[in-house]
Design a binder for these strands. Sequence first.
RNA 1: CGGGGUGUAGCGCAGUUGGCAGCGCACCGCGUUUGGGACGCGGGGGUCGACGGUUCAAGUCCGUCCACCCCGACCA
Length: 478
Amino acid sequence: MADEKLTTQAENFSEWYNQVVLRAEMADYSPVRGCMVIRPYGWSLWENIQQSLDRRFKATGHVNAAFPMFIPMSFLEKEKEHVEGFSPELAVVTHGGGQKLEEPLVVRPTSETIIGYMYSQWIKSYRDLPVLINQWANVVRWEMRTRLFLRTLEFYWQEGHTAHATEAEAREETRRMMDQYCNFAIEDAAIPVIPGRKSETEKFAGAIESISMEAMMGDAKALQSATSHFLGQNFAKAFDIKFLDQSNILQYAWTTSWGLSTRFVGAIIMTHGDDQGLVLPPKLAPIQVVIVPIARSDADRSKVMPVVEQVAGELQAHFRIKVDDRTEVTPGFKFNDWELRGVPLRLEIGPKDIDKGVVTAARRDIPGRDGKSTLSMDQLAAQVAELLTEIHASMYDKAEAFRDAHIHDPKDYDALKEVVQEGWAFSWWCGSRECEAKIKEETKATTRCIPFHQPEGEGRCIYCGQPAKERVYFARAY
RNA sequence: CGGGGUGUAGCGCAGUUGGCAGCGCACCGCGUUUGGGACGCGGGGGUCGACGGUUCAAGUCCGUCCACCCCGACCA
């Protein structure tokens, strides 16, 4: 249990992040280097993320399935760019049952290969398409440097893998799923995200085109918070996913893959958190409303608790609530405790409230007295619903205002060098690998995405001055 | 994998010239408390990261190793 002040974001953002994750009991370090334990409170948030996304996947025609976590090494090697991209970070099983394996098994870093193999078995006709499968799974990438939720050796995610008869349909799917992610981020997580295309160097190993949504964290660094890949026929050719079309011509299928991981928990923490701790978006928060009874004496308790029970009874039909009836800690302690844990709305019920026939509400997104108001006892659920909606909107607005204040339009390269130290640059770029590499080398800022919404006209590359057709976000990233 | 740092109770740390392993918080018990991190009294809890060496004696000195954190390179 937390007992002292957090390191502030201004003092040390990384340290703040670690302390919040640990003290709010989202996660803990594990005995295995680079792996984390996701604790019940953190997992509950992830479950809400899962439900929110799964609903969208189902609504767009997808179904869930489960594929093995072990993949024959030879599968990875079938797609050249894929194996080159992933081989440095593979965990490989060489022994099983006390015997050396004939062929090593890779612990999946992602499942395009094994799913591609299965698709080749299942898809024979245009009538079999599209195949729209998602799986919720854990994957392993042997990263050098890890950070809770943001980069761990093992992480949880969903990976959608689809196969289509035409290029256009597969490209449309790639975009559709990114739209779903953006809708989820904005509507449920209150995170303003920018969707766009990845540069050639930043794209997924084996993809023709990758798109991502990028979010700005509280330290103005960028976090890629979901990706969607148009794989063309690369994996279809590597795994022989072929079908007969309506004209009886054998065709390779067009495939996509898209994913969002537990990293998104980190995005929520770093987008909304403040010096008091977590600030969780109401739609995803494990606990949406915490009720703190305030009772000085036994007499107070017998007066307060029936009202608390009544309020809890009314609200629990509509919200995820928690009654904090601990007697061993003071109300002040509880206030700080639930603020650390990011509960969006706190209701305080004490003798003074009961005398006036009200409850006191405290909004997590507005610290201190300004966030407090009194609610009348009638239509309480409706008032709470309205407050939660307002909290969501104000969290989004605040995050968006912060983001926009940290996106710059540098006049020249010297200016870009400066602005990417404390924000993002939105600049014209000629599209060349060389300029991108130089900027990265000299500023640590990488291209995040080429947003779908482009300004009119053309410009000149911020680095080389050559004509440029598109603007790109440059930023330091997690 | 390069650079830096840290390993002593669950957490944060102190431990002087080598000489009985300590403090604060947390935890347990009792009592008083409770509208923004309560207080008193009494308790429990330790292979001092590991291994080896020096010494009458090592948390402390020497060596080797390990783990974790931070900064880089790489990455969702």
